[in-house]
Lab assay of single mutants.
Amino acid sequence: TFVEFNGKKVEYPTPEAAEKAAKKLAKKLNLKVTKKNGNYKLE
């Protein structure tokens, strides 16, 4: 499962880990999380 932000793509071993990381990053970077095709994107 990938988390995409600032043009970077980071892969996580589980969807749970990706979701957790996405939410944490979104909060830190003041972005919102969108889920697309099972992957997460911060914008």
Rank of each mutant, 00 (worst) to 15 (best):
T1V: 13
T1N: 11
T1S: 11
T1M: 07
T1H: 13
F2P: 00
F2H: 06
F2T: 10
F2V: 08
F2R: 04
F2N: 04
F2Q: 04
F2Y: 13
V3A: 00
V3I: 08
V3G: 00
V3L: 07
V3K: 00
E4T: 07
E4W: 10
E4I: 12
E4D: 05
E4Y: 12
E4A: 05
E4G: 02
E4Q: 06
E4F: 12
E4H: 06
E4N: 04
F5C: 07
F5L: 07
F5S: 01
F5M: 05
F5A: 03
F5D: 00
F5P: 00
F5H: 06
F5R: 02
F5N: 01
N6V: 05
N6C: 15
N6F: 14
N6G: 10
N6Q: 10
N6I: 06
N6W: 14
N6D: 08
N6A: 11
N6T: 03
G7P: 00
G7V: 01
G7R: 05
G7S: 05
G7C: 11
G7Y: 05
G7Q: 05
G7D: 06
G7A: 04
G7H: 06
K8Q: 11
K8W: 15
K8Y: 13
K8T: 10
K8P: 01
K8R: 13
K8D: 05
K8M: 12
K8C: 15
K8S: 08
K8G: 06
K9E: 05
K9T: 10
K9W: 11
K9N: 08
K9D: 03
K9R: 15
K9C: 15
K9Q: 09
K9P: 03
K9S: 10
K9V: 12
K9L: 11
K9A: 09
V10K: 12
V10D: 04
V10L: 12
V10R: 13
V10S: 07
V10W: 15
V10G: 03
V10H: 09
V10T: 11
V10M: 12
V10Y: 15
V10I: 13
V10Q: 09
E11I: 14
E11P: 10
E11Q: 13
E11N: 11
E11G: 10
E11T: 13
E11M: 15
E11W: 15
E11D: 07
Y12G: 00
Y12T: 00
Y12A: 01
Y12C: 04
Y12S: 00
Y12F: 12
Y12M: 03
Y12N: 00
Y12P: 01
P13I: 06
P13E: 09
P13V: 06
P13H: 08
P13A: 12
P13W: 06
P13Y: 07
P13S: 11
P13K: 11
P13C: 09
T14D: 07
T14A: 03
T14Q: 03
T14P: 07
T14L: 02
T14I: 03
T14M: 03
T14E: 03
T14V: 03
T14K: 03
T14G: 05
T14N: 10
T14H: 05
T14Y: 06
P15D: 11
P15N: 09
P15C: 09
P15F: 05
P15Y: 06
P15G: 07
P15M: 11
P15S: 09
P15A: 12
E16M: 11
E16T: 07
E16P: 03
E16C: 12
E16V: 08
E16H: 10
E16F: 08
E16D: 09
A17G: 06
A17V: 06
A17R: 07
A17P: 01
A17E: 12
A18F: 02
A18C: 03
A18G: 04
A18M: 01
A18K: 00
A18V: 00
A18T: 02
A18Y: 01
A18R: 01
E19N: 07
E19M: 11
E19I: 08
E19A: 11
E19G: 07
E19C: 13
E19Y: 15
E19F: 15
E19W: 15
E19Q: 09
E19S: 08
E19L: 15
K20A: 13
K20E: 12
K20W: 11
K20Q: 12
K20F: 12
K20I: 12
K20N: 10
K20P: 00
K20H: 11
K20T: 11
K20S: 10
K20M: 12
A21L: 04
A21K: 03
A21C: 09
A21P: 00
A21N: 04
A21D: 03
A21Y: 08
A21I: 07
A21R: 04
A21W: 07
A21G: 05
A21T: 04
A21M: 08
A22G: 02
A22Y: 02
A22R: 01
A22D: 00
A22F: 03
A22E: 00
A22C: 05
A22K: 01
K23W: 14
K23C: 15
K23V: 12
K23R: 14
K23Q: 12
K23F: 15
K24E: 13
K24I: 14
K24Y: 15
K24Q: 13
K24W: 15
K24L: 13
K24R: 14
K24A: 14
K24T: 13
K24P: 00
K24H: 12
K24D: 12
K24V: 12
L25H: 02
L25W: 10
L25T: 03
L25E: 01
L25G: 01
L25Q: 03
L25S: 01
L25C: 10
A26W: 02
A26K: 02
A26P: 00
A26S: 06
A26C: 04
A26T: 02
A26R: 03
A26F: 01
A26D: 01
A26V: 02
A26Y: 01
K27C: 14
K27L: 12
K27Q: 11
K27F: 10
K27N: 09
K27S: 10
K27Y: 10
K27V: 08
K27I: 10
K27H: 09
K27D: 08
K28A: 13
K28Q: 11
K28G: 06
K28R: 13
K28F: 11
K28N: 07
K28C: 14
L29Y: 15
L29N: 05
L29W: 14
L29M: 10
L29P: 00
L29S: 03
N30I: 04
N30H: 13
N30T: 05
N30C: 14
N30A: 07
N30G: 15
N30Q: 10
N30Y: 06
N30E: 05
N30P: 02
L31D: 00
L31W: 04
L31G: 02
L31I: 04
L31K: 03
K32Q: 09
K32A: 07
K32F: 08
K32E: 06
K32V: 14
K32C: 14
V33S: 03
V33G: 01
V33R: 02
V33N: 01
V33L: 12
V33K: 02
V33E: 01
V33Y: 07
V33A: 04
T34R: 08
T34M: 09
T34C: 08
T34F: 10
T34N: 07
T34P: 00
T34H: 08
T34E: 08
T34I: 13
T34V: 13
T34Q: 07
T34D: 05
K35P: 04
K35V: 14
K35W: 13
K35L: 15
K35T: 09
K35S: 08
K35Q: 11
K35I: 15
K35N: 08
K35A: 07
K35Y: 15
K36L: 15
K36M: 14
K36Y: 14
K36G: 07
K36F: 14
K36W: 13
K36S: 14
K36P: 05
K36V: 15
N37R: 06
N37P: 03
N37A: 08
N37F: 08
N37G: 11
N37Y: 07
N37T: 04
N37E: 11
G38T: 04
G38V: 02
G38S: 05
G38C: 06
G38W: 03
G38F: 04
G38N: 08
G38A: 05
G38P: 02
G38I: 02
G38R: 05
G38K: 05
G38D: 06
N39M: 12
N39Y: 11
N39V: 14
N39I: 14
N39F: 09
N39R: 06
N39E: 08
N39S: 12
N39D: 10
Y40E: 02
Y40T: 02
Y40P: 01
Y40M: 04
Y40H: 03
Y40K: 02
Y40N: 01
Y40A: 01
Y40L: 07
K41D: 04
K41A: 10
K41L: 15
K41G: 05
K41Q: 13
K41V: 15
K41W: 14
K41T: 14
K41Y: 15
K41F: 15
K41S: 12
L42C: 03
L42P: 02
L42I: 11
L42A: 02
L42V: 13
L42H: 02
L42Y: 01
L42R: 01
L42G: 01
L42M: 04
E43V: 14
E43W: 12
E43Y: 14
E43H: 09
E43A: 08
E43G: 06
E43S: 09
E43P: 01
E43I: 13
